[in-house]
Amino acid sequence: MNGVVDRVASLGRIGLDVIAAIGRSGIFLFQALAGRSRYGNGFSLLVKQLYALGVLSLAIIIVSGIFIGMVLALQGYNILKDYGSEQAVGQMVALTLLRELGPVVTALLFAGRAGSALTAEIGLMKATEQLSSLEMIGVDPLKYIIAPRLWAGFIAMPLLALIFCVVGIWGGAMVAVDWLGVYSGSYWANMQNSVQFGADVLNGLIKAVVFAAVVTWIAVFQGYDCEPTSEGISRATTRTVVYASLAVLGLDFILTALMF
């Protein structure tokens, strides 16, 4: 009997902890983004982070994009062939990438590549008292360290998703047109006829923006909120990847239900 009560109580405590963490992260986000950075070199800080989060993630995004586009074309071709409509493969590749795989896979890769690095970097700064020492120098680490990283994530990830889609569609064309022999005219024409800029491209972009915000937010907060020990950092890094992935997949369902 007592055991049951204990378990319920601990469940309640976990629930309260979770709600408190959400509240903390919300306040954290607000404090980081509210108001403008007073530090004159805000722009160069942003550029540095854009490089770290965007440019350095480019390689993995491009390679994955090409392969996913190629696989989509191959699978699509094999299925559509049975219905004699293999010229629709371009349309299938493009729609799949723009609506789903582009934003989702980019977000997952971004969480793994850039998100984990963000968490570890900020966690390490916390553990080595660099954040405290910024505070004591009279610099708000939320503005100086956190804000540029948040903005860089918000900007870089949607761009990466766009690049991912284009590269994927090109990879699909490579397989479908150059290898499987789908007529290139119908590959592109079918695509152009069925893909709508507003409904598909822009909605995909909106998804990417939402995912970017969530993934970056989680990564940065986990770093900032982590226990400042080597164990704490490694746990926070794992949490970033797990939470970010789950959040992306869950939100994807909600956004898809709303959009399409």
């Binding site: 405290s132 004591m136 120098i137 009279g138």
Partner: peptide
Amino acid sequence: RQHMGMLFQSGALFTDLNVFENVAFPLRVH
């Protein structure tokens, strides 16, 4: 806090900046 200085146990230097930039940092921001 600009009127306070604190020396941390670990030193807490900014690891991505060299010695010069570390010392110049408070001057550059303030």
